[in-house]
Write a protein that binds this DNA or RNA. Structure first.
Lengths: 149, 149
DNA sequence: TGTTTTTTTAAAGTTATTTTTAAATATAAT
DNA sequence: ATTATATTTAAAAATAACTTTAAAAAAACA
């Protein structure tokens, strides 16, 4: 299997783009930790680690990482992009707590099977999907049993 | 069963708000057609029908309609709110065509059942969910077999 | 009717995210 | 080396989706 670097380099090459130091730095940092993140969080994270890459480059590189298939963009009802790893990570969906914003990932193959059935029924050719369940996580629903937030 | 108007009037009364002409106009227009829509589309639609309601009133009234339970907000990966009818409409999910933006609604109770299982497993108290499958609709996938868009 | 409260309007303001710009730098090709 | 192409940067600008404002209009109340 190709490494992240190889995939990214290959993608860049196919578009006649270069694998620059900045792109390397961003790639490394993005995959250093397995979490959902936002462009601005990445920026702060790079600053904290004394890695200087300008904001514009971060935005441009994230777009390239998405295009190369290494990242995907997920939106949680907010007005800015959230990213997560595609590389090295099984497809999953999300439970999102409305109270504490905690995100629980889950995988349920039977749901995916049923989605395939639905697509077949409508002759729809699925490329991606996104299932998000909003509600209260265990902790928050305990709290909210007694008193409103 | 209460009509849309009755539900809205009741909600407004409970908040000491008035059922004004503008609110009536917006309610009517929103339910005149069974489609997903965005605040801005509604604005254009009202203009085209020579119904003059200011932008601020549209935004405020949509918020009231959501609060009253007549509408819900759905987001399709864009950065702004999308609305759909709750009143008179069974819960459903969406197939969204990446090519022509067509939206197909579907209902699959077995998926909902499995979602309940998942929630139980994580002791998560679901309040709402949203499943969206992106891809190509029948028409567009035919077209795209031969040539790239 | 006169007074108070609520609502509407158009326009300006806000906010946060993302994109563009123009100059400086780096890389690749000839 | 010279030329062309691509990239980065910081700052400014753009974008988009609302929201606020202050004045005017409408409705409810006394």
């Amino acid at each position: 299997m190709l490494s992240k670097e190889d995939i990214f380099k290959k993608y860049l090459a196919s578009k006649n783009l270069k694998f620059t130091t900045e792109r390397q730095v961003i790639l490394d940092r993005v995959f250093a930790d397995h979490k959902h993140f936002e462009a601005d969080e990445l920026l702060v994270d790079l600053r904290l680690n004394d890695l200087k890459v300008s904001k514009a480059t971060i935005y441009r590189t994230l777009a390239l990482l998405v295009q190369s298939g290494l990242l995907r963009e997920v939106i949680y009802g907010e007005r800015h992009a959230h990213y997560e790893h595609v590389y090295g990570h099984e497809h999953h969906d999300h439970l999102v707590c409305n109270n504490c914003d905690k995100i629980i990932e889950f995988t349920e193959h039977r749901i995916e099977k049923l989605q395939e059935e639905v697509c077949k029924k409508y002759k729809f050719k699925a490329e991606s999907h996104r299932l998000q369940i909003q509600g209260l996580c265990e902790n928050c629903s305990k709290k909210n049993n007694c008193a409103v937030k």
